[in-house]
Amino acid sequence: MTAVNRHASRGLPPLLVPLLAGGLVVLALGVYGRVHTPTGFAVGVAGFSAALPMKAWLTTGAFVLAIVQVVSALSMWGRLGITIPPGVHRWSGRLAFLLTIPVAFHCLYALGLQYDVPRVLAHSLLGCFFYGVFTAKMLALPRRDAPGWTLPLLGGLAFTGLVGLWLTSSFWFFTVIGIKV
């Protein structure tokens, strides 16, 4: 078997469960966000003046850590010519994800999935997409039989989703409302 055939045989079957689980997360978040009656009030904005500044700053922190993720991933894959310790990639990812949890909770619980304003619709859909891709990436991570493009693709999609979330939330907040804490 040639190298090309060997890599071709590692196609999508190992990714079926991670991709299905990610798709179910997207669907579950979207359905919950749509059928749940939003409460309209924030929960746990400790240290912030209101929910919007909390969400803007936590999302900005996750966005900065996502950039660290991309740089450290490029280093791990030998694309930078420098070595960044693997722990930097793991911990920046963990911290970025943790920063998104209170934001996502507030968005789903207090606001739900909204579709009246195009920016808000895009933001709602990107949130569902981000968590679905993140789920697929985490489930594909231990799969040694997955194609070599799996983690860069899923990581890139997660990064793209987070950038979209930041642009439709934090960037919008800082440019329209202003920089507030």
Rank of each mutant, 00 (worst) to 15 (best):
Y109A: 06
Y115K: 01
L95A: 15
A51C: 10
G44S: 11
D116T: 14
D116N: 10
R90C: 01
G30K: 08
V68A: 13
A73C: 02
T60L: 15
F41W: 15
M138Q: 14
Y131W: 13
M76E: 10
L113Y: 09
L99N: 05
C107Y: 07
K137D: 09
M54Y: 07
Y109C: 00
L27M: 10
L27N: 04
A96N: 13
H36A: 15
T83G: 02
A136I: 11
F63V: 01
H123P: 09
G132E: 11
V26T: 04
H36M: 06
W91N: 02
A140E: 05
V26M: 15
V70E: 02
I82D: 04
G87H: 03
F97Y: 13
L126T: 04
R119Q: 14
Y32D: 03
S49N: 04
A136N: 07
S72V: 01
G47W: 10
L126M: 14
V117R: 13
G22S: 07
S72G: 02
M76Q: 15
Q114P: 04
S75C: 07
P38C: 12
F63E: 01
G47E: 10
I82G: 03
G47K: 10
A122F: 13
R119C: 08
V25D: 08
G23C: 06
L99E: 06
V26S: 01
Y115Q: 08
F63T: 00
L126W: 11
H36I: 04
A73P: 00
L111R: 10
A50H: 13
L99R: 06
L52H: 12
V71D: 06
